[in-house]
Design a protein around this nucleic acid. Structure first.
Lengths: 333, 333
DNA sequence: TTGTATGCGTTATCAT
DNA sequence: ATGATAACGCATACAA
């Protein structure tokens, strides 16, 4: 060993009786030589590397290649089943490119900068931001410190950042229209903070298209926490003219609605249809299982490959992919 | 800029009219010089760095320092509220040491090697393995490719690996004893695969200590999936002598028990007390909220600091910390 | 008080 | 067909 500890390329070279250049060529596995290496040499190198337990040094390789061979997957728990797929597909595709994947859970938005250190300090060549993050997080710092950025967002326009459109507004409109078509008369909307975001606007679009007025009494704010949401929905159900359907801006709010329905003796979906947003894992478990608007198409190959394309060539024009959210039908609506 | 793109230390040095060495000293923030740098010089350097947007190069730094300044947090979703705390405390402590944290979610054990690439390829200086992982994953490869490993396990003895003991067996015994003391007569155990692991043994310990026999009819296997578990518990509740309490090896099994109880008209906790294991997030949401055995103490400072101590000096003797699981009381038992 | 020189381990461009 | 060798960007012992 060179000094103390790990085996270096030079140790292998010495042991195999060839130069480090040859070893590097063999072990880094690039086949771009005009003439391929003769088998005996290659074998001697590989044998020596195996015998010495050569592992390679990512820092040295990164420095030389100007690539860390690392990508990050940024997301905010809790998440839906789609993240499993995205993670595994990322890992597979990354491995094919010689890359490894790390997760960056953003557990609190107010600490996002802290969680994103791994990106802003330049440890990764690229990052994928899950839905809902890039609208709340400033991508400027991340953009500067990595070669490629891919994000889910319906609005973001950021130079040099590729984006996947989910068409959230349209998806919420479809969910609401479904309730209208199912004969629901009084469709309520459960909002996080009362902002007129895409989800609310989709709800409005559908009602307007059905020729209905927006009833302010049916639009409620306060799904910030589950406990709060339960109180809000109970109040809604206690009103003289309770809703017969609820569209919630989040699955969390929808679960609260299911709970409040039990409390107030409303049968779901008989008396009350409930639709959530996000299609989280818990939606498949709740009782009844929750119909939820969200990610459905589970093939992320194109977006991951696009990320690697940009890592290879950052000057590529920004791409805009489409993976529309859909209504995932379960028992609650 | 040196070549194309990022500002290097040399650019800063040139701009500030000092040497690279001085810049490095100022910007890497080491105060171990015999004599501190005079203010004017330091200011000129910092000013130049800011003006040029100097970011540093982690690869070069890593190569030179033989440290990646990255640690990994390995866990298997779904997880409990404790992971939020662990993550945030890790991030804080890591930042204080100049480190960044990455998450490594192991979504499928059969793909663990794939997920652990970031560790086995030497990208991180240390890793923390969450409970339940190190008993199923071979740590050999990870141990070789990182300076420090910290893991939760009640049995693991691995040279050079620090470990946190959860005393799972004792915790399950306490949970079962609690049910005994509460007057429960027929306490069932819901097992994943029928193995006589610590959780089952704790259940047995408590019953024996109470002078009771183990009734094989009350020990059921099949909590691998939620659907399967529901079937198993329904069958249990349909038996001539149904249980009046269930201890489940997982929260997942316990949620299934709650569901089966509703199906069969058992009131929880009146007719049937239910205790889960893992203290996952969902336990606080379920109806009724689930009493669950699991992590409680939420101060991980000592273990994270121990990890950094070993990163600093890998020759340290292996440490054994203790963070006993406890019974987290909620409405279900 | 500051600068010079060297090396970290690897890859890539040349020569030979 | 293989080997010298020069970077990659930074940190540090030591010289000045």
């Amino acid at each position: 060993m060179s000094r103390e500890g790990r085996t270096t390329l030079r140790d292998v070279a010495t042991a195999a009786g060839v130069s480090v250049a040859t070893c590097s060529y063999v072990l880094s596995g690039r086949a771009d030589r005009t003439t391929p290496l003769p088998e005996p040499t290659r074998q001697r190198v590989e044998e020596a590397a195996r015998r010495l337990g050569y592992k390679g040094n990512t820092a040295a390789r990164s420095l030389r290649r100007q690539r860390s061979e690392l990508i990050a997957l940024v997301y905010a728990p809790p998440v839906g089943p789609w993240l499993d797929r995205l993670t595994m597909q990322c890992e597979d595709i990354a491995a094919a490119h010689g890359y490894s994947v790390v997760g960056v859970p953003v557990r609190r938005l107010d600490r996002a900068a802290q969680s994103l250190r791994v990106i802003t300090r330049g440890h990764v060549d690229g990052a994928i931001f899950a839905p809902g993050l890039s609208d709340d997080i400033d991508l400027t710092a991340a953009r500067r410190s990595t070669r490629a950025l891919m994000t889910f967002s319906d609005h973001l326009e950021f130079p040099g950042v590729d984006v996947v459109r989910n068409n959230v507004r349209q998806a919420l409109a479809e969910a609401t229209s479904y309730l209208v078509a199912a004969g629901r008369e009084r469709i309520a909307f459960l909002s996080h903070n009362g902002s007129h975001d895409d989800r609310y606007l989709g709800y409005v679009d559908a009602l307007r298209q059905a020729g209905r007025e927006i009833d302010p009494a049916l639009v409620r704010v306060g799904a910030a926490s589950r406990e709060e949401a339960v109180v809000v929905v109970r109040d809604l159900l206690d009103s003289p003219q309770p809703p017969d359907a609820i569209v919630s801006e989040s699955d969390r709010g929808a679960f609260a609605a299911l709970q409040a329905a039990v409390d107030r003796g409303f049968k779901v979906p008989g008396d009350l249809a409930v639709i959530g947003t996000g299609n989280t894992q818990e939606a498949t478990y709740s009782s009844p299982p929750l119909t939820s608007v969200g990610m459905h198409q589970l093939d992320f190959t194109e977006m991951v490959e696009a990320l690697f394309a940009r890592i290879d060539d950052p000057s590529l024009p920004a791409r805009e992919l489409s993976m529309p959210w859909v209504l995932n039908h379960r028992a609650s609506a």
